[in-house]
């Protein structure tokens, strides 16, 4: 197991290097940094002055050398927008996003699994129909709009909760609720179909023939096997909360990575974006590793050597 983790970490480092290289060249080759800063209406001579000032007129390979050395020492340069080191700016936003993601997943995952299992246990029942509605709504959720509607209702009309910002626990309720709709729907759906799948397997017949109680059959026999697709999806959904975070953090002015990404993009801040890519990539790698380790714990057929 330790060897497996070591191998995965080495692989991850390689992937990280490739991603950062791609990002660098995408920024320098597809886009012109100086033009990016100044926007589409910039005059040619302004672009040229800027290129010379920041050294963007030098050969790409020379720039890359400087960039690579910087990355290794954790230096992505100064943010153009805030004029301070980009990496710390990105790093200090992690806790807020993690907090939001954690609350979201802690709320959505268990609830989704319970709902999905109940639906699969009694297919066609009112619970099952309810779960179908939830998962369809989750898949169709227009997160930014739902966030605004929640603000309209709970903050503006009822004045129960703050409209936006961060601080006490009250602030996290609405954003987490908005963000949880999609994972809730998707995980409930997958749990339902994975459980239905397992409950129709021959080994369930065996368990019934053995005279096991229904609870043992559903929770003991089927759920352990159904966990594998559920965990896969949960990992994907955890990563996808970053998608949602961009929008939801914007709506609720939640000071996390997502909000910073939007600011970096609207302020055309290339160093900050490069630093953000680095941070996001690491978050993804860690999530994937956790998912893989959970697999090997759950499925005896997956053994890493």
């Amino acid at each position: 197991m330790a060897r497996y983790v070591a191998r995965r970490l080495i692989q991850s480092l390689l992937v990280l290097a490739v991603v950062l290289t791609l990002v660098f060249f995408a920024g320098r080759v597809i886009g012109n940094p100086a033009a990016l800063i100044l926007g589409p209406e910039a005059r040619a001579e302004d672009v040229k002055t800027l290129e010379e000032r920041f050294g963007y007129d030098k050969p790409a390979i020379e720039q890359f050398g400087r960039y690579a050395r910087g990355v290794v020492s954790g230096d992505f340069g100064n943010s153009w927008w805030q004029r301070r080191p980009a990496l710390p700016m990105a790093l200090e936003r992690i806790p807020a996003t993690l907090q939001l993601a954690a609350v979201t997943m802690l709320f959505a995952l268990p609830l989704a699994m319970i709902l999905g299992s109940l639906a699969a246990w009694k297919p066609g029942s009112p619970i099952d129909k309810g779960v179908n509605v939830i998962s369809l709504t989750g898949a169709s959720a227009v997160d930014f709009w739902i966030g605004l509607m929640l603000i309209l209702f709970f903050a503006v009309q009822l004045r129960l909760l703050p409209t936006s910002g961060s601080g006490s626990l009250k602030f996290i309720i609405l954003p987490a609720l908005t963000l949880s709709l999609r994972p809730l729907g998707r995980v409930a759906q997958v749990t339902r179909s994975a459980m239905l799948d397992q409950l129709s397997k021959p080994y369930i017949k065996t368990a019934r023939a053995k005279g096991f109680r229904e609870r043992r059959i559903v929770l003991g026999e089927a759920l352990k096997n159904a966990f594998i697709p559920i965990i896969t999806l949960s990992g994907d959904e955890a990563i996808s909360t970053l998608n949602g975070a961009v929008v939801v953090e914007t709506v609720f002015a939640w000071p996390g990575i997502g909000l910073l990404i939007v600011s970096a993009v609207t302020n055309r801040d290339l160093p900050l974006i490069e630093a953000l890519v680095f941070v996001v990539a690491i978050m993804i790698i860690v999530t994937n590793l956790l998912v893989d380790l959970t697999y090997s714990y759950l499925d005896p057929r997956v053994r890493y050597g």
Binding site: V15, V23, G27, P40, L242, N243, I261, V262, I273, I284
Partner: peptide, 20 residues
């Protein structure tokens, strides 16, 4: 595999940032 692991909206934002 690589693309599936990247949050799509972030990738889209990045590309749109570069190409307009």
């Amino acid at each position: 595999d690589v693309l599936m692991g990247i949050p799509g909206l972030l990738l889209a934002l990045f590309i749109l940032f570069l190409v307009g």
